[in-house]
């Protein structure tokens, strides 16, 4: 095949947090930028995300957070990915204050897409994240 295959990304929300407007906008944005979005939706756990990421062989995991739990759940997500032996970058979107971004980066989160991030920035960031993912066979 001549074209590179579409990049696969998994999108999910963790726990009770039901604010999925942003996640759905991102899903549509990425679809229209040629990505294959595995949409896991609401009420996931770090564990269920890892299981899906592994089976779906995604290049990026995108987690949306609107409940202020990002400082706990973000690092927990990164740890769960690493514990499963996966090397998949984790990107967080949603309501994350700028002052928390360095902390999240230190914990291995690839990027944080805060409120008001331009859609083109979203696409560029996911491309950059996917580029760090170890490539395919052949």
């Amino acid at each position: 095949m001549s074209d590179p295959p579409p990049i696969r990304i998994l999108l999910a929300k963790l726990g009770f947090d039901g604010h999925d407007r942003g996640l759905k906008v991102i899903a549509r944005t990425l679809r229209d930028a040629g990505f294959e979005v595995i949409y896991l939706g609401l009420r996931q756990t770090a564990g269920s995300v890892v299981i899906a990421a592994e089976q779906e062989d995604v290049a990026v995991i995108g987690i949306s957070m609107h409940n202020g739990g990002h400082l706990t759940l973000g690092p927990m997500m990164v740890r769960a990915v690493a514990d499963a032996g996966l090397e998949i970058p984790v990107v967080i979107g949603g309501i994350v204050p700028a002052e928390d971004v360095p902390t999240l980066r230190e914990h291995g989160i690839f990027a944080v897409l805060g409120p008001g991030t331009a859609l083109e920035t979203v696409v560029a960031t996911i491309h950059a994240a996917a580029a760090t993912h170890d490539g395919m066979v052949g």
Partner: peptide, 9 residues
């Protein structure tokens, strides 16, 4: 666009 949203899971 060739992209997709896969929601069966």
């Amino acid at each position: 666009t060739g992209g997709a949203i896969l929601g069966d899971r």
